[in-house]
């Protein structure tokens, strides 16, 4: 298919989105990510039945927490993409990239650049 997606995106692979935890998303932001999105299987198609639904709830929890801290909750998103749907994967990547470009850099990032986080 030779599809392209923005090179601003770094992929972290998980066996199932059910593996993701709030701390993983929080730490991504703390270490300087401007946005995070979780790309899970379509709802109803999880091989482990509810992994993607759990991930969705964790994304929502993290969003609320980010809002509490004063970091725009829109910076985090959950998408359901069929494993075989390359075009949709590229489309979502572009969509998220554009959304984050509009929001600008994360408020924690300035300090991160100075090399604070460990």
């Amino acid at each position: 298919m030779r599809l392209t997606y923005p090179d601003s995106i770094r992929i972290i692979r998980l066996p199932c989105t059910g593996k993701i935890d709030v701390i993983h998303m929080m730490e991504a932001f703390r270490k300087g990510a401007d946005g995070v999105y979780v790309a899970g299987c379509l709802e109803g198609e999880c091989h482990y039945l509810a992994g993607n639904l759990r991930a969705k709830k964790k994304v929502e929890y993290t969003r609320k927490l980010l809002d509490e801290i004063g970091i725009e909750g829109e910076r985090i998103e959950m998408y359901g993409i069929a494993a075989s749907d390359g075009p949709r994967f590229a489309e979502v990547a572009k969509e998220m990239h554009e959304k984050i470009m509009d929001l600008g850099p994360s408020p924690v990032k300035r300090v991160v650049r100075k090399g604070v986080p460990s």
Partner: peptide, 13 residues
């Protein structure tokens, strides 16, 4: 861990 991460971010901000 989550509170630690959140507080560090709030301070960084």
């Amino acid at each position: 861990g989550i509170l630690s991460s959140a507080l560090k971010m709030a301070f960084s901000k």
